[in-house]
Design a protein around this nucleic acid. Sequence first.
DNA 1: CGGCTTTGACCAGCGC
DNA 2: GCGCTGGTCAAAGCCG
Length: 279
Amino acid sequence: MMEEEEMKIRFKTEISGDGKAPAGNPTTRTYSLTDRESTILSEFGWNLPPEIDDRNHTAARGLEPFALEEASDSTRRLLLRQDRPPSGSPVAPSPENQSISSNSSEEPPAGQPESEGRSAAETSNKAKKKKQKQCRQPRIAFMTKSEVENLEDGYRWRKYGQKGVKNSPFPRSYYRCTNSKCMVKKRVERCSKDPSIVITTYEGQHCHHSLPSSRGFARTHEAASSAQPFYFSNLQFQLHRPLSQPGHWPPLPPHFSVPPAPTDEGLLDDIVQPRMQNR
DNA sequence: CGGCTTTGACCAGCGC
DNA sequence: GCGCTGGTCAAAGCCG
């Protein structure tokens, strides 16, 4: 039961680089949601059609195993690790709470000197960080087959770190949402056993809308709203297709990779068209 | 010049 | 207690 509690929402997505979908199973999909996870998903802005929730609760347990075994040990641990909140504290704070904590812990008080040894303020900052660490945000990990590491998801990210990963030749990159009030982070790494798989882990929830002004996304988003089934990310497509309600597509969720706009011809050919051919 | 990436250092948690 | 590892910081550099 604890183990079940520890499972994160997991999606395996495939963006076929060569345009060839696996025979017989063009769009693999894995998900298994507990009630809590469904809640987390909805908090992330995912509006899953009701029939998906129903299926999850009744039949999703026995779905094909997630390709987690393809990930390195450390990655697997990361994806499966439960960030246990202190007893009694909420699992996923509301955006309001989030921005509050963001204001208090991320942004230093105005006028405070920055680097002057280890001051008391710094110590208290550490304490806050520690506390913050103890009640981590919910995580969602995506495994996406893609040659591109940095998948467009409509938000702007600032890279703040990169680390080598044990048992993996590929480094892990750490990104933070550029919105100063938003505490969402993401980790991006390649699967050590299958370099074509990019593992993206989101942590937290955005307290703002995606940036329509962000280069590329405006066009993409525009395209998405005019031809949703076509320009929806593969993730969205895969997630819904097996249970499809033809003609019904939920709103664009915030966490998923958005294929490039039509003007990015090469990538579009690679990523989107194979799915079109499959339909 | 502002925003971003890079990268070495630092820190905390965890397992042994 | 110690070493390993993940996560973060922050200075320096790059780029438009």
